[in-house]
């Protein structure tokens, strides 16, 4: 059994899927808004399987894992205590930008010339973009879960094909966990995802930017993934059953993923493994 946990498919596919299913099952009737925290807990489970409980030296990857734990607390706090949406969003935006700078700071310091500022400005913008757009759909469980599903698989896919299997696995774990949650959205009519959008948006965008900074992921792969939370707002016919609407929405949000994978696949044509 322990041996199984060494397989990447189990670490970033099976384990997060099961964690998400269990958490969603526990909370779906009593506290439906909490059902989605399984996605972040699934990410943390995969991260601990890959990284262990060692956090020193504090590398960028370990900072992202710590951020995952912190973001869940911040999301809960902001939902509970910040009723004014402007203040809440402003706080989340500032924290998102600071988290990105914290993760890449040592590398940024070593960069020279305009590249440093491009990476800093581009990265902060990318993370804030996801924070704002995912926040705009946080009360629509179907749109936000489908977005996280596509962002997780997309970021993970481009990372694996173009740069780093580690970041690929971490991102895919979020996609797998969001996939499990999507089943509850489609078949149990789970409606609210307020705790999901902020941590998941920041984590997937941090993982994408970290792959760019630490592992040379081509920047255009992230540009192609960026429209996902915007496209998720495309209306699907309300007359259709929920599971068909969820399926249609997944197909729509996966379009940028396919484009991003093709863009990275064109650059890299031979396997190093």
């Amino acid at each position: 059994m322990i041996e199984l946990l060494r397989y990447p498919e189990v670490q970033s596919g099976v384990v997060p899927f099961i964690v998400s299913i269990i958490v969603a099952f526990i909370f779906r009737s009593r506290k439906p808004a909490w059902a989605c925290i399984g996605v972040v807990l699934a990410f943390i489970s995969t991260a601990l399987l890959l990284n262990g409980f060692t956090f020193l030296p504090l590398s960028g990857t370990r900072k992202i894992i710590l951020a995952g734990m912190l973001l869940l607390i911040i999301a809960g706090f902001s939902e509970a205590y910040l009723a004014n949406w402007r203040y809440r969003l402003a706080m989340l935006v500032v924290i998102s930008g600071l988290l990105f700078l914290w993760v890449v700071w040592p590398v940024l310091l070593r960069m020279e010339g305009s590249v440093k500022w491009l990476i800093a400005a581009g990265g902060v913008s990318y993370v804030i973009w996801h924070t704002i757009w995912l926040d705009s759909i946080r009360k629509n469980a179907m749109q936000s879960t489908a977005s996280v599903f596509a962002l997780g698989l997309g970021t993970g896919g481009v990372a694996i094909f173009g740069a780093s299997a580690l970041y690929g696995q971490l991102s895919i774990s979020m996609g797998a966990a969001a996939g499990a949650l999507l089943l509850f959205v489609a078949f149990s009519e789970l409606k609210s995802n307020t705790f999901l959008t902020y941590p998941a948006g920041v984590l997937t965008s941090l993982l994408g930017m970290a792959t760019l900074v630490f592992a040379d992921l081509p920047w255009y792969a992230l540009v192609l993934l960026a429209p996902i939370p915007v496209i998720a707002r495309v209306p699907v016919p309300a007359s259709y059953p929920v599971w068909i609407r969820a399926g249609l929405l997944v197909l729509i949000v996966m379009l940028p993923v396919v484009l991003a994978l093709l863009s990275v696949g064109n650059v890299e044509d031979d396997s190093p493994y």
């Binding site: 590398s59 960028g60 590398v107 740069a163 780093s164 299997a165 630490f214 592992a215 040379d216 190093p272």
Partner: peptide, 15 residues
């Protein structure tokens, strides 16, 4: 490129 990535040497962070 893969060996330079965080999967192995993490050369950007630990040059």
């Amino acid at each position: 490129k893969h060996l330079r990535s965080p999967d192995f040497l993490n050369a950007a962070e630990y040059p």
